[in-house]
């Protein structure tokens, strides 16, 4: 199927955002369609996380229009965006430290009815069997890798239509990184869930992604399909 035939998930039109009057995202436009796993790449401080926060409504736009599915507007709140079916796995994971693992998961499905939430709970734990042993423990005492899995699992609880992930491999040991890549691919295959993935770890990014976008100084510098990055793009925008 060509890109035009697949359902539109997200469209950003000349989206801009600023921190304290200095532009950090400059007129970025792109589309995300059903089936896409988009890697958002670039060096440190080019605005990847900010762009993800713009998509989630956490950072307010000062220009441009966002469209989620059929809703097209210049301003959305995080609550509205999450209700539209966008789930967010933030940098630093942001687990509720005082809640148990079970409560963290159930909170992810807080808008589902009791029966749905129960079914979904079991479905999600299928993907993250490691969490099952830790259900009664407080979220705050888990290791970094376990918290990352919990954050992804919590996001999946709501039966989202789009998943945003901000550096899921940051500070996590390599064998867990590989495991997370496998889980995300399985989720994409079985739940047909479109994703946007902010990553520094190129190897991980292309184990998961089937499209990429490279940011440079808050603007779109390169983009393309495929599970590999042209060497020229790597040299120009990603080599440190």
């Amino acid at each position: 199927m060509s890109a035009g035939e697949r359902a539109l998930i997200l469209r950003a039109e000349s989206v801009s955002a600023s921190y304290n009057k200095s532009r950090v995202i400059n007129e970025v436009s792109f589309e995300l369609r059903y089936g896409d796993k988009l890697a958002l790449l670039g060096r440190n401080g080019v605005g990847k996380t900010t762009l993800l926060c713009c998509i989630m409504g956490i950072v307010k736009l000062d220009g441009g229009v966002m469209q989620f599915f059929n809703e097209r507007r210049t301003r959305f709140s995080p609550y509205e965006i999450s209700t539209l079916g966008v789930a967010y796995v933030p940098q630093g994971r942001e687990i509720f430290a005082d809640f148990t693992v079970r409560e963290n998961l159930e909170f992810g499905g807080i808008t589902l009815n009791k029966f749905d939430a129960g079914t979904r709970f079991e479905e999600v734990l299928e993907y993250f069997p490691a969490l099952r042993d830790h259900l009664p423990r407080k979220g705050g005492v888990l290791s970094g890798g376990q918290q990352q899995q919990l954050a992804i699992a919590r996001a999946l609880m709501s039966r989202p239509r789009l998943l945003l992930l901000d550096e899921p491999t940051e500070g996590i040991q390599p064998n867990i990184v590989a495991e997370i890549a496998e889980i995300l691919n399985r989720v994409h295959r079985e739940m047909h869930l479109p994703m946007i993935l902010v990553e520094q770890n190129l190897k991980f990014a292309f184990r998961v992604a089937n499209r990429y976008m490279v940011l440079q100084k808050g603007a779109l510098a390169a983009s393309g399909d495929g599970a590999e990055l042209p060497q020229e793009v790597v040299d120009r925008y990603l080599k440190v």
Binding site: M56, I58, S77, P78, Y79, I81, S82, T83, A87, Y88, P90, E94, F96, A97, D98, F99, F107, G108, I110, T111, R154, S158
Partner: peptide
């Protein structure tokens, strides 16, 4: 505990 994350969870 975490206002922003709570809002992102509907």
């Amino acid at each position: 505990q975490n206002r922003q994350m709570t809002e992102c969870l509907r």
